[in-house]
Nucleic acid binder design. Structure first.
Lengths: 220, 220
DNA sequence: AGATTTATTTTGACTATTCAAAATAACCGA
DNA sequence: TCGGTTATTTTGAATAGTCAAAATAAATCT
């Protein structure tokens, strides 16, 4: 059985390889896991020995099929737990990531399935992140963001890609939640400023980086 | 923050010291934790250094006030999680102990409180074991068992003190659940045999050891 | 008391995970 | 192609938790 350290390595490799095949640089992984790069090298070599990742020295890591299976299962646990914490326990949207970080390694597949049923088989977690299916399907649609979308068009927010409590708090305070409808009224690449407006609301200015963390799709 | 290993040591010391002050022998602790005795000695010395237990060399260990506080919190988590798994997720009575074993170290106090509220502040877990209160009160009433109670009197089952899946399964199959009413119709110390009957049922024979694991109280 | 059994502690070693710092390789600009 | 960044790997050491087996103390039994 994978230790929770191993689960974390695999989960973060999955998360950093976005869609598919790309090699994750060791440095990026070290940063994500908050350990020094040398530690990642050591650990990745061990993971490679156990067949969970493929290590290309000096280039990066990539999950094997086996590693990906484990990673998706952990991610599924993480996101379903977040749903539970927000929908059932009514916890703060911004706080649940940290909680789920622990719980994802402690809950069994049995509990996972029952939680999934209790929640009505949700497809995304409260931040809009897609929940991998029981057998490893992960929605990987590419969305526009407030930094890249067309202007003056009504769009539905589908997802917030920054899990930090600060950013999520900011999002809540400005009503930038998945499901809400917004329109970008102005975007100036030079100044790096984006102005967005909710249907019923005052204009809100935010930087390009922040705008890029909010994924949107055409209102259906 | 206490590691989950430390939490387990403290929890088991609490459980083994039943009520109060007794020193828990190192061997008993080693057995409960499924490690060799030498390991316990090493670990207990570390726990003593950090002020969580008092170690009497060659005699045993005992929790300090600080250690007891931690242990009660872990036990509270364990038992509330069991309630959740049985009452909300409808999991098998006999399987939840193992699950809770993991979850008790992963859930935060915040989640704990909300779980407690969701469940309606239960006083006992599904096996009848008392749940320590938020601030460390633990019901320590001494109950009679089917091995020690008066015969021919109707009694309510309050608790099953063996958490092993096998025993719990046996209990379920014979309807020996907390809340049920039973009567001991016969007890023979010599043969070590106890015969019990549910109000609406055929007599059931069980050994003294098994009978001693079922706690009862007078029907109110 | 002396010998024996039993519980506990000590010792030495091992695994998993981590860090700091030095060594190495790859890349990049002129 | 040379020199310098920058990323990665290596090396040596630390911590937490564990085991096996030898040493020791305590309790027990003649």
């Amino acid at each position: 059985m994978a230790t929770s350290t191993v689960e974390n390595y695999l989960k973060h490799i999955l998360l950093l390889s976005a869609e598919g095949e790309e090699l994750v640089p060791m440095g990026a992984l070290a940063e994500a896991l908050a350990v020094v790069p040398g530690t990642v090298t050591t650990m990745v070599k061990a993971l490679a020995d156990s067949g969970q990742v493929e290590h290309r020295p000096r280039q990066g890591v990539r999950l094997t099929a086996a590693g990906r299976r484990v990673a998706l299962n952990v991610l599924r646990k993480h996101r379903l737990v977040e749903c539970f914490l927000v929908n059932v326990l009514k916890m703060d949207w911004a706080a649940v990531d940290t909680e789920a970080e622990q719980l994802e390694h402690a809950i069994s597949d049995e509990v996972l399935d029952r939680l999934d049923a209790l929640l009505g088989h949700p497809e995304t977690d409260p931040h809009g992140d897609p929940i991998p299916s029981r057998h490893g399907q992960l929605d990987s649609q590419v969305y526009a963001t407030l930094a890249t979308c067309v202007v003056e068009k009504a769009l539905r927010i589908v997802r917030i890609t920054d899990q930090s409590a600060e950013f999520l708090q900011f999002a809540v305070q400005n009503g930038l939640l998945p499901g809400e409808t917004v329109r970008v009224t102005e975007r100036n690449l030079a100044s790096g400023l984006v102005t967005a407006k909710k249907i019923t609301g005052r204009p809100l200015a935010l930087g390009l980086a922040a705008a890029g963390k909010i994924l949107v799709q055409p209102t259906r």
